[in-house]
């Protein structure tokens, strides 16, 4: 019986991680679902949905040669597939400023209290080593829309974080 797994892969960034991983999975008859892959700092990170007849141990054995050759850490979790259930975001929150500890915690605490469900979050550290800047973009869904999170963001702003929220009005045509 086919089952879904979430594959988490982390390694020092180098060319060939994605093709090596997906090639091995394809040759073993696995099917891929949704994925998020990004270079974070000097690391390459993968979250990948995989559907396969193989069990967890089989999947581990299959990926072992690649993991050894490329020095990758692989973590495997059994999951439910639940594809075709996308939730449409209705707000976007842009945050940026001088990097310091606590930005994400403060912003998301305020947003969570206002009822926001985060669907997607990207953040980068830019600037220079002595003057790093932090940039974060969140797409989320909140019952009540933009109005529901504006007071929360005002509080965050008072603490010196630059944050901007806009409504996402998805056009369907």
């Amino acid at each position: 019986m086919k089952q879904w797994f979430m594959l988490t892969v982390i390694g020092s960034d180098q060319a060939g991680i994605v093709s090596g991983l997906t090639g091995a999975l394809y040759q073993a008859g696995a099917n891929l679902g949704e994925a998020s892959m990004a270079r974070l700092g000097g690391n390459f990170t993968i979250m990948l949905m995989v559907e396969t007849q193989t069990d967890e141990a089989g999947l581990r054995r299959l990926l072992e040669p690649l993991a050894r050759a490329k020095q990758l850490h692989i973590h495997i979790d059994r999951i439910e597939g639940r594809l075709h259930e996308h939730i449409e975001p209705n707000v976007r929150i842009d945050v940026h400023g001088a990097d310091r500890p606590g930005i994400v915690a403060q912003v998301t605490a305020a947003l969570t209290a206002a009822g926001l469900n985060i669907l997607d979050l990207d953040s980068d550290v830019g600037g220079t080593a002595d003057k790093p800047i932090y940039v974060m973009v969140i797409d989320g869904h909140v019952p009540g829309g933009l109005k529901a999170i504006l007071p929360a963001l005002e509080t965050v702003r008072l603490s010196g974080i630059e944050v901007k929220a806009t409504a996402i009005e998805t056009l369907v045509g």
Binding site: E85, H86, E88, T170, L171, V172
Partner: peptide, 13 residues
């Protein structure tokens, strides 16, 4: 830039 979906492309925006 804005978010779009389409009757001809279900469950993706």
């Amino acid at each position: 830039v804005g978010r779009e979906g389409c009757l001809s492309v279900p469950d993706y925006t």
